[in-house]
Design a protein around this nucleic acid. Structure first.
Length: 362
DNA sequence: CATGCGTGGAA
DNA sequence: TTTCCAAGCAT
């Protein structure tokens, strides 16, 4: 880093003058309440602003402060998160609220290090809250910051490597405006989502075009350097849509792993399905929801097109099979008969199955 | 340190 | 259809 003190001050001035003029008006920018900042930052992890806005509004209405979130049933928190993805964020967020009430007596830690001790808060979120809510000169290095500074300084470090964060952290600490650290960080993010976005960038009109090494040398899209992710692994499942007079059979997924604690139709692979077809007994479907008493169960292929859904790391193709059966007791099982789908927490992949069966409006 | 963890939109 | 991207963190 070879910028002079004068150049650094000019950079801050250009950046913040632009921010003051053109910053996005967002629901979580109405104040600097640490709770509001926390909720927004957790929701914004790996998630676009446009997606977050309605969730943020509803969440703050339903859980207006740390105490309200801490004492809410976990299922209600997950329901508020339904469709947003990365559901462990919701559980960790509530755990952080409970930590604040129980261990901190509602007194927030104000340093990045202190904030990082809270559940679900990593280096980025700690820096964001520390700078925005508590005016601490801490970097908030998200994907935008990586891209913006990689371009400004033509940095070739691979940003997918954890150690690269240290390089950027050291650099940004020299640049961050000590008088307005929160605005500085948010201005970088606004820059990264506009003039310096990943695709269709407009570096020529950026308020810091004169400071942009990648633009000055005609190499904007050479930065940031990142290694590609592995493609998702394919999985083939049969989704068992089992109906009784009491509704549809839903199982609750395990408390850890993909879509933890959310509800879905039982999913079985081909080997499990074969066992089921031989036995014709519901308890053979899976250990997950062995029934107290066997109930006859005949699965039918309704001839629906397979439903596809892609996660970050898995690609599912689900063939829907249906069955009509007598209601059997599920009292002690992580399973329920459901007739009103608004009463359970359902991931988007499961909503696709419900829509294919015309049980939810398209 | 590498991997698992959602979803929706754009090209 | 496929690929990549979008305010990361826990383990």
């Amino acid at each position: 880093m070879k910028w002079s003190t004068t150049k650094i001050k000019a950079f801050r001035k250009n950046l913040l003058a632009w921010y003051d003029q053109d910053k996005r008006e967002l629901p979580w920018r109405q104040d600097h309440d640490p709770y509001n900042v926390l909720v927004s930052e957790i929701m914004l992890q790996q998630t676009q602003v446009q997606t977050v806005i309605p969730y943020y509004q509803r969440f703050i209405d339903q859980f207006p402060n740390v105490q309200a979130l801490a004492k809410a049933p976990e299922a209600k928190v997950l329901k508020a998160w339904e469709g947003l993805g990365y559901y462990s964020r919701a559980r960790h967020l509530q755990q952080a609220a409970q930590q604040l009430v129980r261990d901190y007596h509602g007194q927030w830690p104000t340093t990045a290090t202190g904030l990082a001790a809270l559940s679900g808060i990593g280096p980025y979120t700690a820096g964001a809250i520390a700078s925005i809510a508590f005016n601490q000169p801490e970097p908030a290095i998200d994907g935008n910051a990586f891209r913006v500074f990689a371009r400004l300084f033509c940095l070739t470090d691979d940003i997918t490597q954890p150690k690269t964060r240290l390089v950027f952290d050291k650099l940004i600490r020299k640049l961050i405006d000590p008088d307005r650290p929160g605005d500085f960080n948010q201005a970088i993010m606004d820059l990264g989502s506009s003039y310096m976005r990943a695709k269709e960038a407009d570096p020529a009109h950026s308020p810091v075009a004169a400071f942009d090494g990648s633009y000055q040398t005609g190499r904007v899209y050479d930065f940031p350097v990142k290694t590609k992710k592995k493609p998702p692994k394919p999985f083939a499942y049969y989704a068992l849509a089992i109906h009784s007079p009491q509704g549809w059979l839903f199982e609750q997924r395990p408390s850890q792993g993909l879509l933890a604690k959310l509800w879905d139709f039982p999913l079985v692979n081909q080997a499990e399905l074969k066992t089921l077809l031989v036995s014709d007994q519901i308890r053979e479907v899976s250990h997950r929801f062995a029934a107290e008493a066997d109930a006859p169960l005949t699965l039918t292929d309704p001839g629906l097109k397979p439903v596809k859904h892609t996660f970050t790391h898995q690609r599912w193709t689900m063939t829907i099979l249906t069955a009509e059966t007598a209601a059997f007791k599920l009292d002690y099982l992580p399973a329920r008969w459901v007739s009103d789908f608004s009463t359970i927490e359902i991931p988007t992949v499961q909503k696709k199955l419900l829509r294919a069966l015309n049980l939810l409006p398209s």
